[in-house]
Design a protein around this nucleic acid. Structure first.
Length: 263
DNA sequence: GACAATGTTACAGT
DNA sequence: CACTGTAACATTGT
């Protein structure tokens, strides 16, 4: 499911394909693209934004104008003759269009925490310990909350989804239900490093193409094959002889090694 | 029918 | 009261 690495990949791949082109129906030119959390923001002339959240099954594709598909929910004709298409089987995806200010007033953007790739070790520590200002204005982390639930909450840190959370926690050897208040400074440092390495490796490999997620040009990403725990219930842990468990945590499927991930 | 997924909201429980 | 966890919701292919 599109998480930070997939959205980052989408933006990176889409940028050279559409930057500078015009969107005919809006009569606006595409100035730039950026990722914010798991959303894609397209900056248009006139201080307008076109933005997307892929949620579960959304994909942004560049397609020929005569190419049709029942799951293309929205399409935008570009000045180069191609179409930018929002393909979304599950219809959970969100499309925003309007003045930049209006779009950013949407609850999703308004409550988004600091980006997972921008958070420094210091920042992560402050978040987990509830230090400093009410860090992000909509910060939701509590003392006894489990670490996975904390990482998945976009109001705390933006961009981490279910796959990345499990991969990060396995790498850091931390149990997903570990209470955040019990994490030592040393563990937080390991967690921060694991967070960065998982996200950066996934971006390098073009994200996870599980189910049918694709890059705008139709290529698939290579991270899903490299994953260590997600979806690997019953398989052997990559570090010890134990089997990967699956348990419902924070309302999602959680995969982890009960032996080397410390509660 | 159950399930998988995201992110928001409502609500029961501590 | 403040904080937690859980369930429900939007949807549809498997």
């Amino acid at each position: 499911m599109p998480e930070l690495p997939e959205v980052e990949t989408t933006v990176n791949k889409l940028k050279p394909l559409i930057k500078g082109k015009r969107i005919l129906e809006f009569d606006k030119k595409i100035l730039d693209l950026e990722r914010r959390g798991k959303a894609i923001l397209i900056h248009l002339t006139g201080n307008y934004f076109l933005a997307f959240h892929q949620r579960m099954s959304g994909k942004l594709l560049i397609v020929d104008r005569n190419h049709h598909d029942k799951y293309i929910r929205r399409r935008f004709q570009l000045s180069d003759g191609k179409d930018l298409a929002f393909h979304d089987v599950r219809r959970f995806g969100v499309v925003w269009y309007g003045p930049a200010k209006k779009v950013l007033e949407d609850n999703y953007f308004k409550t988004l925490g600091e980006d997972a790739l921008s958070v420094g070790l210091r920042g992560l520590k402050d978040l987990l310990k509830g230090n400093n200002p009410p860090s992000p204005p909509y910060f939701k982390g509590g003392k006894r909350e489990g670490i996975k639930s904390f990482l998945l909450n976009q109001k705390n840190i933006a961009g981490i989804g279910n796959i990345c959370a499990d991969e990060i926690l396995w790498k850091a050897k931390i149990h997903p239900e570990r209470q955040i208040s019990s994490l030592t400074d040393k563990e937080i440092k390991i967690l921060w490093r694991a967070l960065r390495s998982v996200l950066l490796l996934s971006i390098k490999l073009g994200g996870s193409s599980m189910r049918d997620w694709l890059h705008p040009g139709g290529e698939s990403g290579g991270y899903f094959e490299k994953r260590t725990v997600y979806g690997r219930e019953g398989e052997k842990c990559g570090r010890c002889e134990n089997k990967i468990l699956r348990k419902k945590i924070a309302g999602r499927s959680g995969y982890f090694c009960p032996k080397c991930q410390v509660v």
